[in-house]
């Protein structure tokens, strides 16, 4: 027989258990709720341009004429700008980030590793406006001086700033991906007489392929969503950029630049919400891509 004291104690424990479980479950459900609310609210504001102002999605996505006052909110210049700076960021920052990830996971002497980890953590923590400020005061003058750009502001400057900003993401994710490759595979390659670089290039990188893909996708996500650092150095000109040194604008910088002065209910405001909604869809698409890449590697 179980004594009564123990019985009541444990029944109270079971009540606590169900309460705790309920609270924890509610907190998890809140995450779904929050995301749903974001999608619903941004969609309802972001689709007004098409359903209230009756502007065709083609005129929004396919035209570079951004004149909301005359009902022409063409966002193509911003879309091209976003894609261009993101492309430069990933082309410059991606390989460098993976290289440092390789270094940290395979080459770094422990002492150096323990210096670099906090350094990368600090790079993550530096606010985007400070990166923007550095781009403004350090990089733009250099580009003005050496590349003959008039202002120093433009696609190239923004791309370089972004490539540095995505480095920590790419570095730490690619380091994790490479570290998760079993050491036995590395040994097998070395035991066949491969050099360290051959082992890295022919075995480790392919084996970590899906993790590295994820690192790059999340780097892209960070780059395409960054607003202020880009806005401070890109020159903010709503035209499709003709060259690397030309000023441009992106979806995010355009929101930052014009939201403050947009009348509630105006075509301008609606088109800015549409851009935000487009950015939300891009973010969700990239996350879906990440999950697909990870699932493929699990097979």
């Amino acid at each position: 027989m179980v004594g009564p004291v123990i019985a009541t104690h444990s029944s109270r424990a079971h009540v606590q258990e169900s309460i705790a479980r309920g609270v924890l479950l509610a907190a998890s459900a809140f995450v779904i709720l929050a995301m749903a609310a974001i999608v619903v609210y941004l969609a309802s504001e972001g689709l007004r341009l098409f359903f209230v102002d009756h502007i065709s999605p083609l005129a929004f996505l396919g035209s570079a004429a951004f004149e909301p006052d005359s009902r022409s909110p063409g966002a193509l210049a911003f879309i091209v700008g976003s894609l261009a700076v993101t492309f430069f960021a990933i082309v410059m920052g991606g390989p460098l980030g993976i290289a440092v990830g390789i270094f940290l996971s395979q080459l770094a002497p422990p002492r150096l590793g323990s210096i670099m980890k906090p350094a990368i953590e600090i790079l993550v923590g530096i606010p985007s406006v400070v990166y923007g400020w550095l781009g403004l005061t350090l990089l733009a003058p250099l580009i003005r001086l050496h590349l003959g750009s008039q202002t120093g502001f433009g696609l190239l400057t923004a791309g370089i700033v972004l490539s540095i900003m995505i480095l920590p993401t790419v570095i730490s994710l690619s380091e994790d991906a490479l570290k998760s490759v079993p050491v036995t595979i590395k040994e097998a390659s070395m035991a066949l007489g491969a050099t360290r670089w051959q082992t890295i290039f022919h075995v480790l990188l392919p084996a970590a392929r899906s993790g590295l893909t994820v690192a790059l996708i999340l780097g892209i996500a960070r780059a395409i969503g960054e607003a202020l650092a880009v806005q401070m150095v890109i020159g903010n000109s709503a035209v499709i950029p003709q060259g690397l040194l030309n000023p441009a604008a992106t979806l995010t910088t355009e929101i930052v630049t014009d939201m403050g002065s947009a009348q509630q209910g105006s075509v301008l405001q609606h088109s800015l919400f549409s851009m935000a909604f487009l950015l939300l869809l891009i973010a969700m698409a990239l996350i879906t891509l990440v999950r697909w890449a990870l699932k493929r590697s699990a097979l």
């Binding site: 595979i185 007489g193 084996a207």
Partner: peptide, 18 residues
């Protein structure tokens, strides 16, 4: 590296490359 070319090794657990 050249030593391991001439002296190969098979490990405790099979470790084929993916």
């Amino acid at each position: 590296v050249t030593i391991r070319h001439r002296i190969g090794m098979v490990f405790q657990r099979p470790n084929p490359f993916p």
